[in-house]
């Protein structure tokens, strides 16, 4: 892997469950240039850990940028619905 640029990001979540959800959601979409960008997602406690290896600095910037935008969207969705999802289901309408 010599010559590859690597970036590692740690994103804290409120719980390991939410971190795992974010990992699963983001893991579905493959990188657009798999030959030039390697992505590894994992969960450590409450943290989502992403490590990227890219061929160029530009790709590192683009990949990390896109990843953070995705994390932001997932985090906002969890923020908006996470609490409601934890509540026991009540049938408000049949």
């Amino acid at each position: 892997m010599s010559g590859w640029h690597s970036v590692t990001i740690k994103v804290p979540f409120a719980s390991s469950k939410h971190a795992l959800i974010a990992k699963q959601v983001i893991d579905v979409d493959r990188e657009l240039q798999p030959q030039a960008v390697k992505r590894e997602l994992s969960v450590d406690g409450n943290n989502l850990i992403a490590s990227f290896d890219t061929l160029t600095v530009r790709l590192a910037r683009l990949t990390v940028n896109a990843f953070l935008e995705n994390v932001d969207l997932v985090v906002r969705t969890i923020e908006g619905f996470g609490e409601d999802a934890e509540k026991p289901p009540v049938r408000s309408q049949s």
């Binding site: 959800i21 699963q24 959601v25 979409d29 969207l73 997932v74 969890i78 619905f81 996470g82």
Partner: peptide
């Protein structure tokens, strides 16, 4: 498409 899919997946896993 992908933006909306991300939200759909998150909701699917949450609930």
């Amino acid at each position: 498409l992908q933006s909306v899919a991300l939200v759909a997946r998150t909701l699917s896993l949450l609930y």
